[in-house]
Simulated scan of single mutants.
Amino acid sequence: MVIGAGFTGPDIACDCAKAAKNVFLSTRNGIWLAPRVSAMGLPFDLILNRLDLLKERWLPSWWTNKNWANLMESRVNHEACGIKSKYPYMNMLRTITVSDELPLKIYSGQVKTRPEIKKIAGNTVTYVDGREDFVDTVFIATGYTPYYSFINEEILPSELGEARLYKWMFPFQLQHPSTLSFVGILGPAVGGISPNAEMQARYVARVLSGKKKLPSKEKMQKTWTETREELLRSTGGKFIFRTNLFHYQEDLAQDLGLVPSFFKLLLTDPKLAYVYYFGPVVPYHYRLVGDHCWYKARERSLNIMDEALSGMH
């Protein structure tokens, strides 16, 4: 029995299926199962372009939810597999799991999906729908809640929803907010922490160097309140310490002057403009202009598809 279907749980379940007689995967709220290889025959992260992600931000949520649901369902029938998510794609409470192996294991019967667990008594697992299974081993892959015991609760509460952090980095309640910052504790709803952490580190470095001043305490409070309320609206009132990776990166980059002007790029370098908006979103994009831009960023941005696929042949 594997409890939890984020990233770790399905990997454990698939590995166990190679040896165990029965493998059960329990998920409380269901998941959105995204393929590593898209229907277009490319790695999934290479089909996400900046224009699509910007449309996701500004178009109605019902359109975005439907668009993503159609994309996910094109590869896996979530309801038939017993993993249909209780939350729409744009709700930060949803879980997105990236796996090509899991649907194959489910369809072949090597991994059997189950709903939320009601109780475990001895070797018998009872689910909320009344079904029961006999299991020898239970893996708990439900994640964890970070807690920083060495930091005063008034600065960083154990309930992160109450953490008063400007841009989710600077504790604006302090007399000197710029003297303390938190990099890497804000997790993206999908994807790795590293891109978030890199952009946060650049932001903090700019503040510490004196090249960027934090706004007044009142403005930071206002920004925090608006950001938090927007998140609560998207989840129906439940706070979760997550963010949309691209939107958060883009906001920080805009604030730091790292996003090229659309019209200037279109007029001066149309080839790069096309790749920038219709090609994969890559970290090189944030090294094209502004502080610490990189002379090879343009070349790497233009050739990213060839470089990404070069190891395949």
Rank of each mutant, 00 (worst) to 15 (best):
S74P: 09
Q249I: 04
G279R: 00
P35A: 15
P88A: 02
A80M: 07
K66T: 07
A20D: 13
N123C: 07
R202F: 06
E56G: 12
E101H: 06
V138D: 11
S149W: 10
E79T: 08
F241P: 00
L272P: 00
P260N: 09
I240S: 07
V2N: 08
F44T: 05
A80E: 12
W224C: 09
G311K: 14
S310V: 02
Q200Y: 10
V289T: 01
E198A: 11
S74R: 13
V282C: 04
T97C: 15
G130Q: 11
S38A: 04
D136T: 14
A17F: 13
N29S: 09
F241T: 00
L42K: 03
K167G: 02
A308H: 15
A69I: 05
R50A: 11
N196W: 02
P195W: 10
T27R: 11
Y89W: 14
F44L: 05
T97N: 10
Q175R: 06
N91F: 03
C293S: 13
F239L: 02
M312N: 01
L272K: 00
F134N: 08
H78Y: 10
Q221N: 14
D306E: 12
Q254A: 08
G290F: 01
F263W: 09
Q200C: 12
K213P: 02
S216Y: 03
P43C: 08
